[in-house]
């Protein structure tokens, strides 16, 4: 079952669509709760509201369990972290099913033969919630390296030492100017590498970079890049959006 998450659903729905496009192209069977999907509650916990988080988390836990799904795939690393780390810690119980990130399921099903060239020089940006918090560093890199024409630039500040987009911990929600200033610094820094694009794998990073960007560096989510590669339409879908 897919768990798209609130940020992907409402702030950057294009990414949610791209993810679903990819799964359909890879012929992966999945279920999606649509308007019945809820909130993982992560934002409340990040801002210190433990009681309120638990209230929301219990509801969401019951909702997910009631579907009988055996595996949950989150689009958002924030939801992934909440389900895998925070639910057990705060509720004393996990979801009782496997929880994966979108990049992991895509990697499990993609075949190199369906990927068409995407000629771009890009930096992959490790989202904090996916990398440092959940230790998922390789799947996104594997995926991007499978794409013909993709030239990935590895920053010194990557993986465990990755920079932060500025949106986490409720900072984007509560102090937007600060979050955007952090994102601006990262974008300026990445421009110095000669990259044409920054590719991330988190709707928070994407949304924050996108808002901060003046357009001189393309801001992309990995799902958009893979969809473009599958459909062979870099110039149509990627070029137009940034």
């Amino acid at each position: 079952m897919l768990w798209i998450g609130c940020t992907s659903s409402y702030r950057v729905p294009d990414l949610a669509s791209s993810f679903m496009h990819i799964l359909r192209a890879l012929k992966v069977d999945f279920k999606y709760l649509g308007s019945n999907e809820g909130c993982c509650g992560s934002i409340l916990l990040r801002l210190g509201l433990r009681k309120e988080f638990s209230e929301v988390a219990k509801k969401t836990l019951n909702l997910i369990r009631s579907t009988g799904a055996r595996k949950l795939v989150t689009h958002c690393p924030g939801c992934l972290r909440a389900f895998r780390l925070d639910y057990p810690l705060q509720l004393g119980t996990d979801l009782g099913l496997e929880v994966q990130h979108s990049t992991q399921i895509i990697l499990d099903h993609v075949k190199p033969s369906i990927l068409k060239p995407v000629e771009i020089k890009a930096v992959y940006f490790d989202p904090c919630h996916l990398g440092r918090h959940m230790n998922v560093y390789e799947p996104p890199r594997h995926l991007l390296n499978m794409i013909p024409g993709m030239k990935l630039i590895e920053l010194n500040e990557s993986r465990e030492a990755s920079l932060c987009c500025g949106a986490g911990g409720g900072v984007r929600a509560c102090f937007e100017e600060l979050a955007l200033a952090v994102a601006q610094e990262v974008l300026d820094y990445i421009k110095l590498t000669g990259a044409e694009a920054i590719i991330t794998a988190c709707p928070f990073c994407y949304h924050n970079f996108k808002t901060a960007s003046d357009g001189s560096l393309k801001v992309l989510d990995i799902t958009q890049v893979i969809q473009a590669s599958i459909e062979g339409g870099l110039h149509g879908s990627l070029g137009g959006r940034s």
Binding site: S9, S17, S35, N36
Partner: peptide
């Protein structure tokens, strides 16, 4: 959801991807 937006919007991106909600 944190923004108090209509939950139906969650189905829009699925429709855009040509997916029928089946859960």
């Amino acid at each position: 959801n944190p923004w108090g937006a209509p939950q139906e919007l969650r189905e829009l991106h699925a429709k855009n991807a040509g997916i029928t909600i089946s859960a």
